[in-house]
C-alpha cells in the first residue's frame, strides 16, 4: 500500500465515521394503516382464542364470527329499510337536534361568559359547578319534565354537550393576543367590530375543539336518554337485545352507533379545516 493510498483510505474511514445519518426506527417506516390493521388482527385473534377455548361463556362474549354475521344482518336490515332503520333515524334526529341546541346555547353562553366581565365573574362559576356534576344523573329529571318522547332525549343530549362549547368559545375569545387588541383599539373599532372581526375568528380553533368534544358527547347523551326514558330509538334496541342476552346484537348495534358518531365528528373536523384554513390542527399527527 503506497502512502497516497493509505491517506486515501484514512480519509475514507474518517468520512465514514463522521457522516451521521438520522436513523428511522423500522416501525416508523411501516404505513399507519398497516399498523392499525395489525392491531385489529391481534385483537380479533385474542378475542377468537378466548371464545374458542371457552374461557368466557358465549352468552357474555360471542365469537368474532357470530358478531360479524350479526353486523351483516343489522346492516342488511338498515339498508333494506327494515325495522331498525326508523330506530336509527330517530336516534339520529335526537343527536342532530341535541347538537344544534347545544351549539345555540353553548355559543351564546360562551360569548356572554368570554366577552363580559359579568359573565366571567357571575355566570362562569355556576357553569363550572354544573359541569362537575355527573350530568347523566339529570336524565330522570328531563324525562319527568319532558316525557318519554324525543324532547327529553334531545334535552339530555344538548345538556351534556353544551359545556364543552361554552368553555371552547369563552377560551377562544381570550385567545387574541395583546397586540391584536391594541391594534383594534387604535383603529377605533367598536366592541362589536372587535368581537366579530377579531376575537371570534382568532378563537375559532378553540371553538372548534369545543364543538368536536361536544359532537362526541351528544351521542352519549341521546343514548343515555333512550336507556332511561324509553322510546323507539337505537338505545332501546340495545337495551332490548341486552335483556334478551343477545350479545352479538348489542355489539353490532354499538358498532353502527359509533359509525354515526364518527361521521358527526368527521363532519365537524371537515368544516373546521375549511373554515379555520390558516390553523393546522396537528393533534392527530402528533408533533410536526
Amino acid at each position: 500500500m503506497s502512502v497516497t493510498e493509505m491517506h486515501e483510505k484514512q480519509r475514507n474511514d474518517s468520512a465514514d465515521d463522521t457522516v451521521w445519518v438520522e436513523e428511522v426506527a423500522w416501525i416508523d417506516r411501516v404505513p399507519a394503516p398497516v399498523q392499525m390493521a395489525f392491531v385489529f388482527v391481534v385483537f380479533v385473534a385474542c378475542w377468537d382464542l378466548v371464545t374458542r377455548f371457552g374461557l368466557v361463556s358465549p352468552i357474555i362474549l360471542p365469537t368474532p364470527w357470530e358478531t360479524w354475521r350479526d353486523i351483516l344482518f343489522v346492516g342488511n336490515n338498515l339498508l333494506t329499510g327494515g325495522y331498525m332503520l326508523p330506530a336509527l333515524w330517530l336516534t339520529l334526529k335526537e343527536v342532530v337536534y341535541g347538537f344544534a341546541l347545544a351549539i345555540a346555547i353553548g355559543f351564546t353562553l360562551g360569548v356572554i361568559v368570554g366577552e363580559t366581565s359579568f359573565g366571567e365573574k357571575a355566570i362562569m362559576p355556576y357553569l363550572v359547578a354544573i359541569d362537575t356534576m355527573p350530568k347523566v344523573a339529570f336524565a330522570p329529571l328531563f324525562v319527568a319534565w319532558l316525557g318519554f318522547g324525543i324532547e327529553s332525549k334531545v334535552a339530555l343530549a344538548a345538556f351534556i354537550a353544551t359545556f364543552a362549547i361554552v368553555v371552547g368559545t369563552a377560551a377562544g375569545l381570550h385567545a387574541a393576543d395583546h397586540n391584536a387588541r391594541m391594534l383594534f383599539k387604535t383603529m377605533g373599532a367598536s366592541r362589536w367590530q372587535t368581537l366579530v372581526k377579531m376575537k371570534l375568528p382568532a378563537g375559532l380553533p378553540q371553538i372548534f375543539t369545543g364543538l368536536k368534544i361536544a359532537s362526541v358527547s351528544v351521542m352519549a347523551g341521546a343514548i343515555t336518554g333512550e336507556f332511561l326514558g324509553g322510546g323507539k330509538g337505537f338505545g332501546e334496541l340495545i337495551r332490548t337485545a341486552a335483556a334478551q342476552l343477545n350479545t352479538p346484537r348489542v355489539f353490532s348495534l354499538i358498532l353502527y352507533l359509533s359509525i354515526v358518531g364518527l361521521a358527526l365528528f368527521l363532519l365537524v373536523s371537515y368544516i373546521q379545516r375549511r373554515v379555520v384554513f390558516w390553523h393546522k390542527d396537528r393533534v392527530m399527527r402528533g408533533m410536526d
Binding site: D177, N179, A180, M182, L183, F184, T186, M187, G188, A189, Q193, K197, M198, P201, A202, V276, F277, W278, H279
Partner: peptide
C-alpha cells in the same frame, strides 16, 4: 394617527390586501 408596533399583527384569515384595508373597513 397611524400606529405601528413591534409585531406586524396581520390576521391570518385575511389576505394581505384585506389586512391592509382593515382600518378602512372598521371606520
Amino acid at each position: 394617527i397611524g400606529m405601528m408596533f413591534q409585531q406586524a399583527t396581520l390576521f391570518p384569515w385575511r389576505t394581505t390586501v384585506e389586512n391592509i384595508v382593515l382600518p378602512i373597513e372598521i371606520r
